[in-house]
Design a protein around this nucleic acid. Structure first.
Lengths: 345, 345
DNA sequence: CTGTTAGCGCTTTCAC
DNA sequence: GTGAAAGCGCTAACAG
């Protein structure tokens, strides 16, 4: 192993002092260095292929230029968020440490991490509407710049990136209604055992009811627990429907179950049933046959926006900004909701 | 901001010297410390909620206990690999830095990173059979402990985790044949513009030919470029098939196109056509209707195995191990390949 | 404007 | 056994 090249070596070769080398590299304001010397230094850096030791620098400055992202690696959304975060980090020359859900304790370990690694900031991908008092207290006490993706909708003092679920449902319904002219049925999936919708699903549901009332239509809501293996439940309901009918489901999982039922009943999606999803949890919408129309959540953009805000916070750029960043959903029209004959305008 | 707690503070409070504190924390061999003092130190650490500064430590020791993972964040496989890597890191108390494809230069930047951040090792998720001479030369010159996932199958001196694609095809064919008793047609997708199969696809293809010959059957191979929008190509071929027929496709994308054609021709997957995929690129197999049978690649395990090997390398545990880790594919039987009537044994 | 120097917090060697 | 001190590579403050 060859010996490490230090700023000392560079200084010696360029015939200057180490302070100058540092000034050249960091463009330290208040230190003027002659053009000639600067060139010398740059040349020496090039020739020795020197690069600063980030550890030593951050030890001195107290800033590591590292942020940490924490989330559930089982969840494909987290990958998208990471992608956005990663881009922001690259753009602003930060590094990204990755931590995954492992045990219950691990979130607390992040605080420890903050001390150990001198992480400059922390970003977590939470489930929609997640709130954890204790955690927020810890973060605040530790003085960590912090940002949540999808958490803490009701806590103004916590920075987070949020989705406007109500608006996303309106977007979906406007489209579905324009395509089909049919009053959409809302199929609401939930995680058992009890019906306890999270923040996002509550907003979606009320968005639906609101929209229907606006149009003077009667809301029709089907509720079913996800994971419930009960094909006949679906078959009975769908069999009783007039054809064609239009359905909007809060989770794409619901779309999948409707497709399965249609297969059993020998109904055709896109002809007998118009189906649309209000998310893309499984990231399979476009691969279903026929491809499932949906409103989808811009997780990459959320990650990017969140990371930029976090970096602003770290660098003290945004002293008194609003704590919430709201993101709009994106309409993805596909084959499951063709334009119904005679509705062209 | 409260002042940082240092080992000095701990030492003072525990009434010992800093060397002892260090010895207690790291269990330094060759330094014996009395049980009483040890207890004192631990108590002081607890009371002051002290944690070592990783930067300072790694500056001193030259080891950062950090590895970096690099890959394409657009690719869902990479998330799975990351998951495995992350687990290995947690188990062995390492930290994980994440870098994504951004520009062409960024891979070179990893080398720089190695110097700057004192990364202990590097892991890349490459495309199947990827090889890059120049990169390997750079890595070797820099002396970076390095591991590739899916790359460098033919370079014995490079450490990598590989999949046995030939065996995976045999596994798929054995299953498909047992279920249906039909000679499977092989549907080979490729990325255009020219037919230039990668390492994995070459192995799959020869695995198919080999298996068919073993059974005394004539190989039938359809080739189609992915992204080619040509529904009639599929419809004509599939229409000409005797029913039922069995098809195995190298990419799940092929399964998707077959499903679409079946929909147009009003054929039923699982009754008229038995379909199976030899991968799960889109991670949508189980959400297709009917769910698509496949052999799938254990990317989580690959990441984990790769990371553990990398850490072994870093810690000098495995002086002369074989450079390749071979992983077997996993059979995932689903609804698209039901047991054909009368074939129960 | 340039050069010297103090220290960031830790580990490890070397005297005691 | 224990304590002092050197030094990892850097930046910022302070002399010259």
């Amino acid at each position: 192993m060859t010996k490490r090249v230090t700023s000392h070596d560079v200084a010696k070769r360029a015939g200057v002092s180490r302070g100058v080398v540092s000034a050249v590299i960091n463009g330290t304001p208040g230190i003027r260095v002659s053009e000639e010397k600067r060139r010398e230094v740059l040349k020496a850096i090039e020739e020795l292929s020197y690069s600063v030791d980030a550890q030593a620098r951050s030890m001195r400055t107290g800033k590591s230029k590292c942020i940490a992202a924490y989330g559930n690696l089982d969840n494909p959304f987290f990958l998208q968020v990471l992608q956005g975060v990663q881009r922001a980090c690259t753009e602003r020359d930060y590094h990204l440490l990755l931590y995954g859900h492992n045990r219950q304790e691990s979130k607390q370990a992040l605080i420890k991490l903050f001390n150990q690694r001198r992480i400059d900031g922390l970003l977590t991908k939470d489930v929609t509407g997640y709130e954890d008092e204790e955690w927020i207290a810890m973060v605040k006490e530790a003085g960590i710049p912090y940002m949540s993706i999808e958490g803490y909708p009701d806590r103004e003092e916590v920075q987070s990136v949020l989705l406007d679920y109500g608006a996303s449902i309106h977007l979906a319904l406007d489209y579905l209604y324009a395509q089909t002219g049919l009053p959409p049925i809302y199929v609401e999936m939930y995680n058992g055992p009890e019906y306890a919708p999270n923040w996002g699903d509550r907003n979606r549901r009320s968005g639906y009811v609101e929209w229907m009332q606006l149009k003077g239509l009667d809301p029709v809501i089907w509720q079913q627990r996800d994971g419930e293996i009960d094909p006949s439940w679906w078959d009975e309901r769908i069999r009783s429907l007039p054809l064609p009918s239009a359905l909007l489901t809060n989770w794409s999982q619901g779309g999948f179950l409707i497709y399965q039922s249609a297969r059993r009943l020998e109904l055709s999606i896109g002809r007998d049933l118009y189906v649309m999803a209000a998310d893309n949890t499984m990231r399979a919408n476009e691969y279903m046959v026929p491809a499932l129309s949906a409103v989808e959540m811009p997780y990459v953009e959320m990650g990017k926006a969140g990371a930029h805000r976090l970096l602003d916070l770290i660098e003290g750029k945004q002293p008194r900004a609003a704590s919430k960043i709201w993101m709009p959903a994106v309409l993805a029209p596909r084959e499951s909701t063709p334009l119904v004959n005679g509705r062209q305008d």
